[in-house]
Design a protein around this nucleic acid. Structure first.
Lengths: 266, 266
DNA sequence: CCTTGTCATTGCAAATATTGAACGCTATTC
DNA sequence: GAATAGCGTTCAATATTTGCAATGACAAGG
């Protein structure tokens, strides 16, 4: 529910249009994202209006996307929706992504051993993260998160991870921090302290801030020196994370993230 | 290994380029497919050469795709690869596809009950099919097929399904039939007889032709009157499909496909 | 150290995609 | 039932992108 917030779809479109030498592609991507957001198929005009496009251009783009099987067209209703072609691309990406391949078995083991949900995420600067691997233990509560989900960069435990190890100046962090939505939002100072702690211990914790009653732990993964490229995440309901469990989980997650960093950089 | 045969990538590119009024999008899609096929990241020239594009145009398209996070660019090596953005699109498609949502529980039940692998596939005319849902029972052998896999339309049991219920003339079927790869290819007459049987019984069977030792059963699903839009598929090793098992499986799969057709058209 | 080959990138002319208005159509409203 | 409003679609003029040749950067090899 909280995921999939694409930052200002239309404004981003106009800016990327001005600069680019292939604006049709920016338009196409915007259309794909819009169709993905909507659960109902849309008509040409509706899409054009929403994205600030000229209807005729929008039509031609849609026809091209339909030709490529990225968009499905219903001749009766004249409505457009995403098509299964995007699935094929996603599978190909998954097949070739090193992180996904290496992280999945680790996540499976962790999820089983601790009886919780684990995620692997790819970090996109201060903008957002995308979940690229997941494992759910049978006992774990059903989570709305899935592979492909997007989240704002600075939220929850992964956010503290990014802040702690990304080397970003406060001037860039603070405005983005202000726009986040939490169940129980921490103050800026509180959050900064938790980020500092993550930097020291090498691992970040969100104790019920993002979703109350849910504890999230995240460890950074480096593909190359500099900022972390990915993160390993463990998610458990509060009761399972009290007492002895949490320290042992942190230890194990940290070890996994170190091993992954080694394998990815090699 | 047998999947992902995109029919003549470059020739399709040139034809769709001529006709389209948004050729940049055809180019972009071709690039995405090419990058998906290759496991190694590629440079501008390599991509341009392979697709018959002008390097400069290719560069601009790649930059636009990178901007949209559909393509990842490594500034050090100057190489391009697919990026995680395609995952987000795929997830959004899965969330909103009716067939996926309705078929998944049926497939899960079937897989568990019969101890085999089940698939849901979307049919794209005589060109190909895309697997859009899957369920594996614990006991089942690990299958290389995954959600997003592509297969030629006329192969295996789904192929007989398409031929039986699609209403295609033989003149269109025969040349495509000739290009298929089977472990133990049936003759044209043999195949036609099996297609006829599928038309009578309402369900198609491939008994070890596509992959020897493996029996595949496929039942058509209609979203609208005309040709079937999807298919439900069950895959089992020969031994599990002998004797009593197969007729019961066919019955159950057929019932599931009928129920699905009803729900989709309603 | 110079040469050679390849690569990514840029500038300019020509081809072409985008635009905005006009068309035909369907469904709704008076 | 006529009129309107909205839709998808087409068309010709123009602003834009494409394609090609040239440039600069880089690594390998002599």
């Amino acid at each position: 529910m909280k995921s999939d917030q694409h930052p200002g779809t239309d404004s981003q479109l106009t800016t990327s249009l001005k600069a680019s030498k292939a604006p049709a592609i920016s338009r196409a991507a915007a259309i794909l994202r819009l169709l993905g957001k909507r659960s109902q198929p849309m008509g040409v005009q509706a899409i054009a209006r929403e994205l600030g496009l000229v209807p005729s251009t929008c039509l031609y783009v849609l026809r091209a996307l339909t030709e490529e099987e990225l968009v499905a067209f219903d001749p009766d209703t004249k409505r457009y929706a995403l098509d299964a072609g995007v699935l094929t691309l996603a599978r190909q990406w998954l097949r070739h992504d090193q992180f996904h391949e290496l992280a999945q078995p680790l996540l499976d083991r962790l999820a089983r051993e601790f009886g919780l949900t684990t995620l692997g995420a790819q970090l996109f600067g201060l903008d957002h993260i995308i979940v690229t691997a997941m494992s759910q233990s049978g006992e774990a509560f059903q989570l709305s998160t899935q592979v492909g989900s997007r989240f704002p960069a600075l939220v929850s435990a992964t956010g503290r991870c990014i802040a702690a190890f990304g080397g970003w100046p406060d001037a860039q962090l603070k405005p983005r921090f202000g726009k986040l939505r939490w169940d129980e939002a921490p103050s800026w100072e509180e959050w900064k302290a938790q980020v500092a702690e993550a930097r020291e211990t090498g691992i970040a914790v969100d104790a019920g801030h993002y979703i109350s009653g849910v504890t999230v732990v995240a460890a950074p993964v480096w593909k190359a020196p500099g900022r972390p490229s990915h993160a390993l995440v463990a998610i458990g309901i509060g009761s399972a994370m009290r007492g002895e469990g949490l320290p042992r989980l942190k230890e194990t997650l940290l070890a996994a993230s170190r091993s992954l960093s080694d394998q990815l950089s090699g």
